[in-house]
Design a protein around this nucleic acid. Sequence first.
DNA 1: TATGAATGAGCATTCATTCAT
DNA 2: GATGAATGAATGCTCATTCAT
Lengths: 202, 202, 202, 202
Amino acid sequence: MGQRGRKKGSNGEQSKALLLRIAANEFAENGYHGTKVSSIVKRAGMTQPTFYLYFENKEAIFQELVESFRGNLFNLTRKSRLEPGIEINSLSGRITYGLAEMFTFFKENPDLTKISFFESSTSEELKRKLALQIEENLASEVENGYFSASVDMCTFAESLVGLIERLTVTQLFPGIKEPNRLAEEIVDIFLNGVINKSIKEE
Amino acid sequence: MGQRGRKKGSNGEQSKALLLRIAANEFAENGYHGTKVSSIVKRAGMTQPTFYLYFENKEAIFQELVESFRGNLFNLTRKSRLEPGIEINSLSGRITYGLAEMFTFFKENPDLTKISFFESSTSEELKRKLALQIEENLASEVENGYFSASVDMCTFAESLVGLIERLTVTQLFPGIKEPNRLAEEIVDIFLNGVINKSIKEE
Amino acid sequence: MGQRGRKKGSNGEQSKALLLRIAANEFAENGYHGTKVSSIVKRAGMTQPTFYLYFENKEAIFQELVESFRGNLFNLTRKSRLEPGIEINSLSGRITYGLAEMFTFFKENPDLTKISFFESSTSEELKRKLALQIEENLASEVENGYFSASVDMCTFAESLVGLIERLTVTQLFPGIKEPNRLAEEIVDIFLNGVINKSIKEE
Amino acid sequence: MGQRGRKKGSNGEQSKALLLRIAANEFAENGYHGTKVSSIVKRAGMTQPTFYLYFENKEAIFQELVESFRGNLFNLTRKSRLEPGIEINSLSGRITYGLAEMFTFFKENPDLTKISFFESSTSEELKRKLALQIEENLASEVENGYFSASVDMCTFAESLVGLIERLTVTQLFPGIKEPNRLAEEIVDIFLNGVINKSIKEE
DNA sequence: TATGAATGAGCATTCATTCAT
DNA sequence: GATGAATGAATGCTCATTCAT
């Protein structure tokens, strides 16, 4: 600002942002313990004391990353909550859309996703909370009679989380499948099952 | 003593086994980096050099644990392979049985399971191989027309792995659900889907 | 301070230089294996991590010492190379001068000399190279007819090295003889032999 | 003995001898610190406790090796002492013979030679003693007028030791020159010098 | 805003040596 | 005469973190 106004944020903000970005990548690549503060700052072209100018310690930058991911993720899931009284016809479409949005978010933030899902000590908590939200999200549908009441919703929600997690790593990140496609496949499997109906009816 | 051999396994074998057991627990609890050789031997009532009598280094004992888990797991999955020409009626039962056995194995070896699925650098490889085996295992069923050909088998297999992983951690280990129960629920969801058929057919 | 730079060399350079000096002494006194990094830094009034700030590991500081000695030594011997066409009268003077310079260098760097000649795994190589240089240095003199062609130059050169090495340790280092004196004696012995000519000619 | 009489010495003696032989080689190859008791016994097909049956500790076996070398070496040099009143004509022959015997001894015991000359903490002492013996050995010759009194006998003796040491390593051990040949060359150089007499007399 | 220099605390690994059998 | 099993005591090295500037 003032003289020649720096392009975007103060120099300090830029430095901090850079450190965050690089740290995310390092943590995702090498895990928390496998990542050295010295490596982060080296890649950022800074020195170690500079790091401590912006973050209290190694744990702090990690938590900041996880926290931001967590916040954004829950914003997303909150938005895609199914309103009660939804049309049965648009149901699967709504679910597909929600899933696709989530996958898109993961795809745009692969490092943060990896960290938050697999490296953080609070990963479990995160996933459990996600499962819970999914459970709530779908509970009403059961009441409405859309979903089979015979299925344990808790098991179902956790299953969904596990599968989302896995498909994110094996299909989404390597670029094998796009968010939309993945979402559709999941919905297809879960709604209808995999058994061949024509045989079944024999 | 006296007639050939001490009470149970030679003393050395016992020591090694003890170290393996304790190490598995430590690794499962604190992760690879969070586990100190000194902690392992302390819990075993030994000294550090003794550790190196049985294992080349920290990495080695870890690999030995993972390897043994991997070996046993693949033995199991190989055994529960579906033979071709199986009766359609017994199909879901067979699948349920296979899953139940796997969950039982996990339940009996929680430490090894945690390590191999979440701590090892070869976890991904392990899961991918497991998914592959599941894929193969089910591929014939598609040919036989039991399974809907519309479902991408790769996605399906990976989904299964993800969900098995997740349910193991959240339901099986805490003792919320038993192996059999979990297996049944999974099969139920996947075979039939979760949509309420009566509504759907309206 | 104030105008550019601290008193003498940056603080880091000073530290490194101090470590090198002390390490040289420790290695010379106790050998490579007998020297502990902890002893070096203790004498330098530093802590162990500081050591690793300047040297990759124990081996590295040792090699740096040996390398510097080797470099300086070969600079020296290169300079004192005998030019072709030298006067027969000044020949022995030139050789004496070269030897004296070498002894002076050794005397000024006793620790490095000890290390490089007796502790390094590349000692042999160093001596061989030195012998080779001596050989080359004198080869022309044989052609010019100054030296008796009957003498095997290789044997002669190696002999010189062995004797330099030995006299350095037993006469020079304890201060029994000065560089000049030693050089003169060597030249005397080698040029003329030790047999009493008067008797011989009888 | 008695029943089937073991070929040579008791089993224990054999074991000890084997350990000594192997240890000599290991020490010669890797130095004192570079040699592990565990390596010695492994090559001998024994276990570590067995080692301590025969030697108090690592230092002890090393000293035993050095001691035996030292004893034999001094026997040798004592025998080849020049008697006073020797003929001037046979003088150089006698010296050559003595040197050749020493080289032969070294060649037959390369490991012990290496250890005693380069690895032992008493190497210096050994060489000094050897130099002293040489000095004594030749002192009378000076009195008798055979050797030029202008040469410092101490320097000369030490020179001889250094050169013997060096030629042993570079010419004798690699098989480049035979004991006799080496001895002759040394005597030639030292007695007559290397200067070309014909030029000198110009 | 930034850094050159330094360190406290810790960890994996090694090796000579010994005890009970 | 021999060994399976174990250990006391080091030692090299690393890493997150800080102080003075």
